[in-house]
């Protein structure tokens, strides 16, 4: 196995792990704010690591540039969308979850 392949597998494993964490978080966490938290952070990192793996597989060509563009775009828009969703929830007076209730 070449070093590139090893790097691809490592990044892909990381991406899968963090996306799995995001999926578990979206299913298991108690309220919308904590779910927005895991969706914006764990999912963005998972998608980013996987896209890095894809870019490494492609090597140096024009597709790699598009993948990097996609990565930058997801890194900017995903937390922004989660912020918009959380703020919409706040405007609708949805109470945050607390342990004592």
């Amino acid at each position: 196995m070449t070093p590139t392949e090893i790097a691809v597998i490592i990044f892909l494993g990381g991406g899968l792990f963090f996306t799995l964490v995001a999926a578990v978080g979206v299913i298991r966490l108690p309220d919308i704010y904590s779910r927005a938290h895991t969706a914006s952070q764990a999912d963005t990192l998972g998608a980013g690591l996987t896209l890095v793996a894809v870019a490494l597989t492609l090597g140096l060509e024009i597709s790699t540039l598009k993948t990097v563009l996609l990565l930058v775009f997801i890194f900017i828009t995903n937390p922004t969308a989660a912020h918009a969703v959380a703020r919409a929830a706040h405007e609708q007076d949805i109470e945050p979850w607390r342990e004592d209730r």
Partner: peptide, 25 residues
């Protein structure tokens, strides 16, 4: 709540983009 649904669809969309990139490679 409705926001939960929007958030879940957003996560689904992000994963869709990643799936497309993986299939492309």
């Amino acid at each position: 709540t409705m926001q939960d649904r929007v958030l879940a669809v957003n996560v689904i969309g992000t994963n869709t983009v990643v799936i497309l990139a993986l299939l492309s490679a």
